[in-house]
Each structure stands twice: as structure tokens, then as C-alpha cells.
Design a protein around this nucleic acid. Structure first.
Lengths: 145, 145
DNA sequence: CATTGATAGTTACAAATGCAACAAATATCG
DNA sequence: CGATATTTGTTGCATTTGTAACTATCAATG
């Protein structure tokens, strides 16, 4: 005679996360799509290179949690648009080191500013403590399982 | 001579949300994909019908924040697999009311239980207060802009 | 009621993605 | 060394998605 205490499904975390992710990502996309013709994955690769310096595709896969196919295609697109260049690593010629061009660095600089601004509007109504908890929880969920 | 105080890009909210959403969704997908052959959108449509009773496609679009083509295709797939049925509304024959079949209700019942269990494992390491703040923030971000 | 406009839902085509197979370089181990 | 296995990255094909155009029904206006 036990009533199961079910989660209200509209509170289901993966569902909420998806909605929040899609909503904010589509919104921010306006910032880079029209001006730089980038896709979401490309912007993600770009900002890893801007933030962490030269990396191999494999390193980006690991850090950004992206499949190597996605990274491969994003790198090709960014290269075609002259946002980055590749150089083979002589000591292990399977790797190629990816570096932003001047143009790529300029785009990164601009988008970093815009991202900062956008992030701040997103969290504007949250307290500092709430922001910290949100960050903590999301980072844990991003690495869960 | 002003140093801009840039956000650390790995803290950028849309990025964190995407990673957390993808990670948890792919994880939970194991629960419905193999057993019921559903895709993510189909599961989402199913649980809206299970939770809120009969709805039109349009209502699901609004409530779940899904594009009508996605809903249309998910409904077709769910119908093909006999999880739901459609009936034209006589007073306005543009609408069709979607209702779960017995089989659809059974799947919903099962998946609701699994979702509850999975949700609990996700938040197991968070305090009750943290859970509440996370919910509040995510709901706001899901409706932002 | 006839024209025009709006709404619910579908479909066709292009773009993006996931998966598996692949090539090339290196590592391992007899 | 030489055979086999592993790693890095790309490509082909099937699936999924997004966009826009479409059909069918209903509403509004003259």
C-alpha cells in the first residue's frame, strides 16, 4: 500500500539542464554566428585555444568533452576561415598543434568580452552565493558518472 | 589603463549547462533507448503526456519548448510504436489530441520511476538547499531572454 | 459568403551529427 | 628488427535536426 513518491517530471534535472542549455546557447549564438559564421562547436574549440594556448585536437576532445569527429570538423572549418593554423609536431607526427591566427585571436578577444557580458546578464538576478552553488553543481554534473 | 576582468571561459554558463545537459542526458538515455527504442525528444513528449494527460502537439511545443517539427516527428514515431494515439478534435479539426495507449502508460510509469531514481543519484551529493537553488536557477535560465 | 489572414501540423531539402571503418604514425614485445 | 596493437586524426554513410514551404482548417473582415 505504498504510494511511490515520484519526482515531478518537470523538475527532472536532465530536462531542466537541456532546456537551460538550449535556451542560453541559442541566445548567445547570435553573438558569433552572424559576425563570424561559426557554429557552436567551432566557438567552443576557438575559446579553448584562446584560453589555454596551443593544443592538439585530442587535448581539446578531452578538455571540452567533445567527440574527435566533431573537433576534427570544427578545426577544418576554423582553418578554412583562417581562425587557426595547424603544424605537425615533429617528435610525434600524428599530432598537430593548433594555434590561433591573428584573426582568430581577435575574434576570441571580442567573443570573450561578449561572453563575459552575457554571462553577467544571465546571473544578474542571482546572489553571489547562488552563483557559486550553481557553478559547483554544474561542474559536478558535467563530470558525473 | 584598465584591465578588463574577463570571465574564465570554462565557467561560462552556457558551456557548463551544455556539458552537464549532454552528460546526464546521454547517461539517462541508456534507460529508454535500448528498451523502448525512443529518442530524447520522444521521451520528452511521452513524459509530458504522462504527466499532464492528453495534449495537442501545439501544447507540447509550448510546454516543452520544442519546435513543432520535432514534436511532429516524435509523435509519428511514438504512434508507429503504439505508445500513443491521435484523435481529431471535432470542434476544431486542425488540432489532434494525443493520448497514451496502455503500452505508453506502462512505459511512462516505468520511466518515471527510473527518472526519479536517476535524478536522486545525480543530486545525492548536494544538500537540500543546494538542490533548491539549482532548481530555481535552472528554471529561470530555461525561460531567460 | 468570399477574400484574406492566421493557426495546427506535415514534409522536402539542406545542414549537422554519430558511428564505424579507415589511413598514418608510433608503441610494444616476441 | 618485424609483426601486432595502439593512438591521432579523417572520411563515408546513415540518422537527426533546422528551415522554409506546404496543406488543411478555421477566423475575421468587407
Amino acid at each position: 500500500m505504498k504510494e511511490k513518491n515520484h519526482l515531478q517530471i518537470q523538475d527532472f534535472l536532465p530536462y531542466l539542464l537541456n532546456r537551460a542549455a538550449e535556451n542560453t546557447s541559442l541566445d548567445f549564438q547570435k553573438t558569433y554566428k552572424d559576425r563570424y559564421g561559426m557554429l557552436r562547436t567551432e566557438w567552443r574549440v576557438l575559446f579553448h585555444l584562446g584560453r589555454y594556448g596551443d593544443l592538439t585536437a585530442k587535448q581539446i576532445c578531452t578538455m571540452a568533452d567533445l567527440h574527435k569527429t566533431k573537433v576534427s570538423r570544427a578545426v577544418s572549418a576554423l582553418e578554412r576561415q583562417r581562425f587557426l593554423e595547424r603544424t605537425r609536431v615533429p617528435t610525434d607526427r600524428r599530432n598537430e598543434l593548433l594555434s590561433l591566427t591573428k584573426q582568430g585571436q581577435a575574434a576570441f578577444g571580442h567573443l570573450q568580452t561578449e561572453a563575459t557580458r552575457y554571462h553577467e546578464t544571465l546571473v544578474a538576478s542571482f546572489t553571489v552565493e547562488e552563483q557559486a552553488i550553481l557553478q559547483k553543481c554544474l561542474k559536478q554534473l558535467a563530470n558525473f558518472s
